[in-house]
Every structure is written in structure tokens, then in C-alpha cells.
Nucleic acid binder design. Structure first.
Length: 526
RNA sequence: GCCCUCGUCGUUCAACGGAUAGGACGGAAGUUUCCUAAACUUUAAAUGGAGGUUCGAUUCCUCCCGAGGGCACCA
């Protein structure tokens, strides 16, 4: 990664100084660093002079990375040399689908748990946000050198399931409604009327059907493949919950009060203690969640990432407390909190709820706008911003979704190759001298940085934004430079450039789980 | 009441404490004898308010205003 290379060069110059300076792509140059501003402040010197000093030292090294280094307002601006840029094109071509991969993860095992919706109804919009986010984060981490496992936790036991049972039976304790509940009633309860239904059993059956017939197919349509579907029930069957509670008790983190067993989470950063076993002897979901946490670490994961809805926010402190109590490092658990998606219809907010039966399912969304648009749509938004969704607007705008701009760039490249009789050759890359050509190369080499940054801070909206910028650079190049011309050598060089672009576009789109159509039909409506 | 998240062009989203706040849609004006005009070029338009820290704040801190979400022996 270039940022890292430049950083190393600077660090060498400023020697032992430990500074928190940055090197970033910049609108003023190819890369810029604020190192002088920070160093000068520390040493109480003039930033401009400090910058000049650093610049002179770097120039002495005669590094072939740069064509020019300049100092402006105390910033040090770096311009990459053409020679270096052309080497990078070769690197992309050589790297192919591996271009962008890195080893920052050092093969650490990460468990990414996401969606994990209760099997009490279909997946909805909110699950789409977490679903696509989790899947893409997993892909990013894989590309960054982690060993990733995608996991779905199924809450297939307990109060929710009993309530589901009541709903299917249709008694007065019913909470869920909707057509699928009626269908389940027909399927499970059957015609011969009997009044001996046990809500728990019915709920369990219904949950299984919902999982298999509704959730799993939706997940598949979303383009997501889980490595593990983890059933909460197994934690009870295998005695993990009891073992975990016993361990907490033994370590002095659990105590009895008012007939219940409590976890001393308040001693470990939570605002209050939490119940593990209720007065009536029933273990809480939190108890099995701790068991699940322990189970994940016991399976050998170095790091856990858990996607949570904003309505489960309070959970984070509890889980981290549990982590510490069990002797694991709480830093190895990252919770990603998703803000809720609000549904709007005709300009008015509609409260989504599986209980009232008012919601938009993920299947409906994909039916309406297609998977590519749906994915891009969600990925463009930061996970922790509030999100208003209007299906009518989404439908109306789906034709104008920027994902097509990206796919169109890809299609244009394929079209050129389909028509060209000449093959790409890299021996004359020196002929690439146009501004738009060099700009395009600069975009290509940002890709590994985009992945590295996203793997570190989980800010996935960076990916679609980058894809758009890359497509833009390509389209500008396309307008400016004709690829296939009479000049054979130039044609070969430009074909190499667009081949490299194709590789990066394809890698970027695949990372987002978006298709790479070889051609895009012209929009009839337009 | 306490805690968390969010407030950016008309709309919807971007911007590790950096330079002239970026894109998309919508608005205005253009570009096609030539590899797909779902493209390109030009243009108007925004940081909720008040303080503070800093060489420098959309970003960090405090208060206020507004939206959402938590504060269960529910999940």
C-alpha cells in the first residue's frame, strides 16, 4: 500500500519521533502528509521550515516513487512518478482477482455473527441492512487476510417461540399476525380440532418451518452463505448454559438474591447486575448468550464481531462484562450497532412490527429493485445512521442507482475487448501520458487501501463510494481517449489499462456481492 | 430523569482533526459521422444554535434545540 510506503519513508527521516501523523490521498496532490505540522508543534518550530527539511531529506534518497514533492501551507505533497504508476498497472494485471488482498489479518480467526433474527417471521428491511453489511464485512475481512466464519444464531427456544406457538394456535396470547401465521396454522394445527395444543411445541415446529421455508431461502436470495447456523437449543442440550453459569458462580461473579441468580455485571462496567436464572427457575436469554459467547471462544475464534440492532444496544456492556468474567479479553469482541430502519409510506412514517404485521420484507425489496440495487442501496449508508426507507421512492430511484454507473463501466470495457482484434500488451505502458489515463491508474491503486481501511474501521460505505469514483475515472478516460486505434502500440497499452480497470472493478463489485454483467442494455425509458 | 446514536445542498447519503465540505437524484445550460449517452462537460445549492480546545473543527468537549433507540426476574 502506497500510504504505508510513504509513511515508512517519512518515519525514516524523522527518526525516532513517535508521531500520530497521517498520509492521505488528497485533492491537492496524489498524497499529502501533515507530519510537519505535528512535528513542528511538538518542537515549537515553524511548520514550513520543518516541512522543507523533511522534503529535502526525502529527496536526498532519490526515491523513484515520486516525481515531485512540494510544501504548501506546511503540508508535504507527494506526486507519484509515471514510472511508478506504470509498475502498478503491471501489479494489478499480475494480481488479478487477488489484487487488493493483504495480510493485515494474519490469518486470525474471526467470527462474524449477523442477522440472527428470531425465527418468528420473515426477514425484513432491517435484516437487510445487517445482512448485507455483515456479509460484505466478512468479505472485506477475508480479503484483508482474516479467516472468517459467518454465523447465524437461532433463538429457537424460550418466550418468543412460545409466543409464536400461541400466535399459530390463535389463542388469546397470540402476538404475531399475518398471512404466514395463518398458513402455519393450516399446516401445523390441522383440521381435526383439538384443544390440547401446547404452545411451546407448536412454536418450536413453526419456528423450524419459518427458518427453513422463509429465512433460509431469503438469505440465499440475498446472496449470503452462512458457515454456521447455530441453534440456541443446542447450548441447553449440551449443558453449555449450565456449565457457564457454574463457572461464573465458581469465579464469584454470580450471587443469589430474591430467589434469582444474578450476574455481577455492575462490577465489570455495566450499570447494573443482570439476572441469569429467574425466580421461577427459567434461565434468561442473557444466560444462554453468555454460554454462546464462551462457546465461540472455545471454538478457537480470536475475535468476535456481532451485529446488533439499536434496540439491543444495552447488550454490549453486558456481553463485555461477561467476556471479562469468563477470562477473555473484551477487546476481542466488537459489537456493531445498526440503527433501525424506519419505513415511510406516502410521506408518513409507518411503524414496522412483526407483531402488527406491518413491515416490508427483504424479499419484497429484492423483488422490487433487484439484488444489486438493494445491496448498493444499503451499503452506501453508514450503519450507524438513521435510515428512512420509502418503497415508492426506492422503486422510482432504482433505475438511477449509481450501481449501474459502475456496472456500465465494466460493460463498456467488456465491449471494447469483444470488438478489439488486438490483445493487451504491457511493453509500451510508457505511452500512457494523458491526464485521464494517469488519473485512472491512481484510482486503481487505491483499492488495497480501501480494503485495509474498511477492515480496520468497518466503515463499509467506503466501498460503493470508491466503486463510483473508479467508474467515474474510467468514464472520463473513455470520453477522452479512444482505446482501439490505428496505433497498435498505444492500443496495446490502453487495453492493458482497461484490463487492469476491469480487474479492479470486478474485485470491487464482487466484494460487495454485486453482479458483473458483461453488457448493460440501454435504458428504454430514457 | 439517566445512557447511546443521529442532525450536512430541495431530497438522500459521503468527508482517520486538515487545504476550495464530495457524490447521487432533482434544477439550469451543453456534448453523439467515432469502442454502448445508464456516459461526459459546465452551473446554482448545505455543516441545527451558542460557547470551548486547537496553527486548523462537519469531526473532539460543554450547553441548548430537534429525531430515533435503550434504561425488565422481555428478547
Amino acid at each position: 500500500m502506497i500510504k504505508e510506503e510513504i509513511k515508512k519513508i517519512i518515519e525514516k527521516v524523522i527518526k525516532g519521533e513517535v508521531l500520530n501523523f497521517s498520509v492521505e490521498t488528497s485533492s491537492h496532490a496524489d498524497y499529502s502528509s501533515n507530519v510537519a505540522l505535528i512535528l513542528a508543534k511538538k518542537e515549537n518550530k515553524n511548520p514550513r521550515e520543518t516541512a522543507e527539511l523533511i522534503k529535502t531529506e526525502i529527496e536526498k534518497q532519490k526515491n523513484k516513487l515520486f516525481s515531485k514533492i512540494e510544501v504548501v501551507n506546511g503540508f508535504i505533497n507527494f506526486y507519484l512518478s509515471e514510472k511508478y504508476l506504470k509498475e502498478q498497472v503491471q501489479k494489478v494485471l499480475k494480481g488479478k482477482e487477488k489484487f487488493g488482498s493483504s495480510n493485515i489479518g494474519k490469518k486470525q480467526k474471526i467470527n462474524v455473527e449477523f442477522i440472527s433474527a428470531n425465527p418468528t417471521g420473515p426477514l425484513t428491511l432491517g435484516n437487510g441492512r445487517g445482512g448485507f453489511g455483515g456479509d460484505v464485512l466478512a468479505k472485506v475481512l477475508e480479503k484483508a487476510g482474516y479467516k472468517v466464519s459467518r454465523e447465524y444464531y437461532i433463538n429457537d427456544i424460550g418466550a418468543q417461540i412460545t409466543k409464536l406457538g400461541h400466535s399459530v394456535i390463535g389463542d388469546e396470547e397470540a402476538v404475531y399476525s399475518g398471512k404466514y401465521i395463518e398458513d402455519l396454522r393450516k399446516e401445523i394445527v390441522g383440521l381435526p380440532k383439538s384443544y390440547n395444543f401446547k404452545a411451546e411445541e407448536i412454536g418450536e415446529k413453526a419456528g423450524k418451518i419459518i427458518l427453513e421455508k422463509m429465512i433460509k431461502p431469503s438469505v440465499k436470495r440475498m446472496g449470503i452463505k452462512f458457515d454456521t447456523w447455530f441453534s440456541e437449543t443446542t447450548l441447553y442440550k449440551n449443558g453449555v448454559v449450565d456449565k457457564t453459569i457454574a463457572e461464573l458462580t465458581k469465579k464469584g461473579f454470580a450471587y443469589e438474591s430474591e430467589g434469582a441468580l444474578w450476574f455481577k455485571s455492575s462490577e465489570l462496567g455495566d450499570d447494573k447486575d443482570r439476572v441469569l436464572i429467574r425466580e421461577d427457575g427459567v434461565k434468561t436469554y442473557f444466560a444462554s448468550d453468555i454460554a454462546y459467547l464462551r462457546n465461540k471462544f472455545e471454538r478457537g475464534f480470536d475475535k468476535l464481531i456481532i451485529f446488533l440492532g439499536a434496540d439491543h444496544y444495552g447488550y454490549v456492556a453486558r456481553l463485555k462484562a461477561a467476556c471479562q468474567a469468563l477470562g477473555y479479553n473484551k477487546e476481542n469482541v466488537d459489537a456493531i450497532v445498526l440503527q433501525l430502519v424506519k419505513l415511510f409510506e406516502n410521506g408518513k412514517e409507518v411503524r414496522m412490527s412483526k407483531r402488527t404485521g406491518i413491515y416490508v420484507t427483504i424479499d419484497e425489496l429484492i423483488d422490487e429493485v433487484g439484488l444489486d440495487v438493494a445491496r448498493f442501496f444499503f451499503l452506501q449508508r453508514s450503519l450507524n445512521t438513521h435510515f428512512n426507507f420509502d418503497m415508492d421512492l426506492a422503486k422510482e430511484k432504482s433505475d438511477k442507482n449509481p450501481v449501474f454507473k459502475v456496472q456500465y463501466a465494466y460493460a463498456r470495457i467488456n465491449s471494447i475487448f469483444a470488438k478489439s482484434k488486438i490483445k493487451a500488451k504491457t511493453n509500451n505502458l510508457d505511452l500512457l501520458k494523458e491526464q485521464s489515463e494517469l488519473e485512472l491508474i491512481k484510482q486503481l491503486i487505491r483499492f488495497p487501501e480501501i480494503i485495509g481501511d474498511s477492515a480496520n474501521d468497518y466503515q463499509l460505505q467506503r466501498l460503493p463510494n470508491y466503486a463510483i469514483e473508479l467508474a467515474d475515472s474510467f468514464h472520463k478516460f473513455y470520453e477522452k481517449c479512444r482505446v482501439v486505434t490505428e496505433d497498435k502500440k498505444l492500443t496495446e497499452a490502453r487495453l492493458s489499462l482497461i484490463l487492469a480497470t476491469k480487474i479492479v472493478l470486478e474485485n470491487a463489485l464482487k466484494l460487495m456481492g454485486i453482479s458483473t454483467p458483461k453488457e448493460l442494455k440501454r435504458n428504454e425509458a430514457k
